[in-house]
Each structure stands twice: as structure tokens, then as C-alpha cells.
């Protein structure tokens, strides 16, 4: 690297195609500054998961391909690595829908997260203790079969498991999905702690715009594979069109983002249209 960059992740206008024909992302660019939390927002089918899987290289196993643009993780071009190699580089994705190993115990799930590392028994104990320090609930459940724990606990297992790989960058796909508000709050509190204490950079895909922006530094809104708008979390929270469309504050029905942008006359200084 000639120019030292403070972005741990840079995505430059990528296009993603599934099965050689189905185009899922058209033009997505985004950056994650080192040590920050960035939210990737959008409704169902907008392309959030596809973006995360392009970064973690999990796309390949679903017959998806990045056909244009570049992804740079910490100075390294992401191209053709296996997911295991990405984990080795410190990039771990928590997949949508938690995906715990149902027949394994909670603790076995968490230990499996350290598969890419060589740890002695004592080191493993230390790491587990540290993780249970963040995820207190899991300590009592550690002998339970993961498949029989609650949705919130499974989400915690999934994040705890990912943290055991000692990531520098974490990709979280809809951690709030299907969870009661107080559980969502608990999970986001832990995610914020992990970001601040462990220094892990986070890219967070969410449909729950409100919660995500309250816990993020910066946000991107995507629709049908295009970035529509991006800005600091605060500016997005205060933006009228975002409030209208994604925060459910407007009394009118939901509109399409394109329509809103067309009507919008005032230009916010810290908002950028994609």
C-alpha cells in the first residue's frame, strides 16, 4: 500500500449476478472506516445479504459472482479467496437467521468459532471467559443443546461464535430479525461493547432502520441493488425522506425511495445520493 488508508473496507461499484443471469446488485459502493459501525439498510430483497456475502466470499457457494467493481479489505483485494481464508484474514460474517449448530451445545458452538485459530486449553478457557463476559446469558446455557435455546440466545451464540475467530471486521446480517424489542436492545448493546472494547469494525445489515442507525456511525440505504442515500447516522435519522420511508413516522403509506428523491428540493449538506 502506498497510501495508508483508514478504511478497513472499501467497495467500489460492484455488480453481483446469481446463476449467471439474475442480477442482484447493480452499483454498490461503500466504505467502512476502521473501528466504526456502518449500517446497510433496506427492505427485503434490496441486496443487503448479497453485499455481505460478496465481501465474505460466501457468494461462490450460492452460484453468485461479483461481475464488476472491486472490494478491498484492509489493503487486500477480495477476489477468489475461500470463506475460510477470509476468516484467516480477520473477516467473519454472521449469517442471516443465526444458523447455530443445533445439535451442538452452546459452548461447542462457541468453541467451533475458534476453529481457524490454534489455541491451547488454557487459552481457550480464557477466550471463553472473555466471551461469557459479554454474553452473560450464555454462561448459564453453555451445556444446553443450541437448537433448543431461544431465538435471542441463538443470535447471541452466532455473534459469540464469530467473535471467537478474533475478527477485525464483523459482518452482521439482520441480528434483530424476529426478536422482541428488549432482546434487540440487549444484542445491540453487546455489539456496541464489542466494537468499543475489542476495536472490531462492523458492517451491519438491517431492516430495523431505527435501531440500526441509533447504534451506528454511518448508514447506507440500498434499494434493488443500488445505493440510494448515505450519510452519518445522525443525519439519516433526521432526514425527512428516511423518516417517511423507513422509520414509520409518516402517516401516509410507504412510498418508493425514488419518488421521494424526485420531490426532495432541500439538499442536506451531509447527505449524498447514490
Amino acid at each position: 500500500m502506498n497510501v495508508p488508508t483508514d478504511n478497513i473496507l472499501e467497495i467500489d461499484s460492484i455488480e453481483v449476478v446469481y446463476d449467471n443471469v439474475i442480477s442482484a446488485l447493480h452499483d454498490v459502493s461503500l466504505t467502512v472506516p476502521r473501528g466504526k459501525v456502518v449500517a446497510l439498510l433496506g427492505g427485503n430483497g434490496a441486496g443487503k445479504s448479497t453485499t455481505l456475502k460478496a465481501i465474505s466470499t460466501m457468494l461462490a457457494s450460492e452460484k453468485g459472482k461479483v461481475t464488476k467493481g472491486t472490494i478491498t479489505y484492509d489493503g487486500t483485494p477480495v477476489k477468489g479467496q475461500t470463506p475460510a481464508e477470509m476468516v484467516g484474514l480477520g473477516m467473519v460474517q454472521v449469517l442471516e437467521g443465526r444458523r447455530c449448530f443445533g445439535h451442538l451445545t452452546v459452548e461447542e458452538n462457541i468453541i467451533a468459532g475458534a476453529y481457524s485459530r490454534r489455541l491451547s486449553k488454557a487459552e481457550m478457557r480464557n477466550e471463553l471467559e472473555k466471551i461469557y463476559g459479554y454474553f452473560n446469558r450464555l454462561r448459564d446455557k453453555r451445556k444446553s443443546q443450541a437448537g433448543y435455546t431461544s431465538g435471542g440466545e441463538q443470535q447471541m451464540v452466532a455473534v459469540a461464535r464469530a467473535m471467537m475467530a478474533k475478527p477485525r471486521m464483523l459482518l452482521l446480517d439482520e441480528p434483530s430479525m424476529g426478536l422482541a424489542p428488549q432482546l434487540v436492545a440487549e444484542i445491540f448493546r453487546i455489539v456496541t461493547e464489542l466494537n468499543q472494547n475489542e476495536g472490531v469494525s462492523i458492517l451491519l445489515a438491517e431492516q430495523n432502520t431505527n435501531v440500526a442507525l441509533r447504534n451506528a456511525d454511518y448508514g447506507y440505504i440500498i434499494e434493488t441493488g443500488h445505493v440510494m442515500l448515505h450519510g452519518t447516522a445522525e443525519s439519516l435519522l433526521n432526514d425527512d425522506s428516511v423518516r417517511d420511508l423507513y422509520l414509520g413516522i409518516s402517516k401516509e403509506g410507504r412510498k418508493n425511495f425514488r419518488d421521494v428523491l424526485r420531490q426532495e428540493s432541500a439538499v442536506h449538506p451531509d447527505l449524498h445520493h447514490g
Binding site: V94, H103, L104, E108, I111
Partner: peptide
């Protein structure tokens, strides 16, 4: 064993296993 844990993880969910770096 570690390999055994990896196998059981793959048996439950190969996608999730691969996402945490199990080859």
C-alpha cells in the same frame, strides 16, 4: 477432537461452518 467438532458442525450446517472458517 477439534476435527470431530468441525465434522459435527459441518453436518449441522455447512454454510455456517464455512462462515466461521471451517474448511
Amino acid at each position: 477432537t477439534k476435527m470431530g467438532l468441525g465434522l459435527r458442525a459441518v453436518a449441522d450446517d455447512p454454510g455456517a461452518a464455512s462462515s466461521i472458517g471451517i474448511p
